[in-house]
Write a protein that binds this DNA or RNA. Structure first.
Lengths: 222, 222
DNA sequence: ACCTGAACACCGTTCAAGT
DNA sequence: ACCTGAACACCGTTCAAGT
């Protein structure tokens, strides 16, 4: 999947680039400290600024002053590194969703704020969001990633149960309701960051409209 | 120049490799017929069976018995080929949506059938769907692709207007409603094909539930 | 334990040349 | 007009070897 995205622009002046290459430690010196953490942070930085297609193991290695194969001491492969990036994303995501729910007073307002926070996260971190949901993490299903993703989903489930207990939402299966609501915000998020609504679309307005329709439906009410 | 006259048959390795290689036309023979079409069809075949990451220009060239650079006579680059694949996808998609709408009798049933057909298409052609919506087509915004994508969206807009005229749907802005409904089915489709609902999730059941909630909302009704 | 460097098997794209 | 073949500038991954 990675190889298919935008091919990086080729730099004709390779020789010139060599001279301005990031500082590189003497081979005898190992990267001291937490290389694993450094790799994840550098990967995220690159993803945010260049997109997933801009992430190369050679690139992160060079930036960190480390061999391009050093990563294999800490991750199974590139997909393993991406899984860690996704995991961290879900962690931040979960915290932001909880925060919105709490600040919104946990009621219907809390749910709306959570929906707005959801789309806001995706729009603010499109590449990171794509790593989390775009199927970039393939092969072995990372257990830690699954846990973190489930945790974020659980925030929504808990909110729904709360609303049901306070008579503010239908008594359907909370998991089914959560799957539905997640689909709505995920759909908006994806279409917005893919530019499917047009480049100048107002994500906040679209989301607000969607959350209103979510609550009261599209049927005509007389 | 002189090196070119070296008889290739004298190199044992080359001869042996040739024998097990996919059939290749004699260099003097060009690919007759519509190479452009052949390229698109082969690309789609590969995408369906191997996923987008399995698509390589070298691979399609070899299968078609054509140089790997022959493609550049018909498309700007790999992204251009993908844009054509996406375009064809939107065309088929549009026809299937229209068919569902008509067969369903154009009413509320028609809309539900259209929603079911939407998700069914994505589940049946996950890789193709991802090419259409996954942001693989980058760079120059292909005009023909945009037209086709807009055409598919318009089917939904038209249906909404029909429903409004028959008093079956709220009188909100049709475009805004269409954006919302599209988000719902797109969200379900993406989460299902990404396996986010679990591998054994029943897509049809999830979609049916979603389309019911779409119509009547999630609020408690007393 | 941790990292390197060379090697391997891939990519997409460009371009002069051939028919 | 259409296609080739070599060359170029990239990739991720493996593995013997070094500290």
């Amino acid at each position: 999947m990675l190889t298919l995205s935008t091919p990086r622009a080729y730099h004709p002046a390779v020789v010139e680039r060599r001279s301005t290459r990031p500082r590189r430690k003497r081979p005898s010196q190992y990267h001291h400290g937490d290389l694993r953490r450094a790799l994840v942070e550098e990967a995220l930085r690159t993803i945010q600024s260049e997109g997933v297609s801009g992430l190369t193991l050679r690139g992160v290695g060079e930036t960190l002053g480390v061999s391009r194969t050093a990563l294999y001491r800490h991750f199974k492969d590139k997909s393993g590194l991406l899984a860690e990036v996704a995991r961290e994303g879900f962690r931040t995501f979960r915290l932001e969703l909880i925060d919105a729910w709490e600040r919104g007073g946990r009621g219907s307002q809390g749910l709306e704020d959570m929906g707005m926070a959801y789309v806001r996260f995706a729009v603010a971190n499109p590449s990171h969001y794509r790593v989390m949901f775009g199927g970039f993490v393939v092969g072995t299903p990372d257990a830690a990633l699954l846990t973190e993703a489930t945790g974020a989903f659980q925030v929504l489930v808990d909110a729904i149960i709360w609303l049901q207990q306070h008579g503010l939402m239908r008594d359907d299966d909370p998991l089914q309701l959560a799957g539905y609501i997640w689909s709505v915000v995920h759909g908006i998020a994806m279409l917005v960051i893919d530019g499917q609504f047009g480049a100048q679309a107002d994500a906040a307005m679209l989301t607000r409209f969607a959350l209103e329709r979510l609550r009261t439906g599209t049927d005509r009410r007389d």
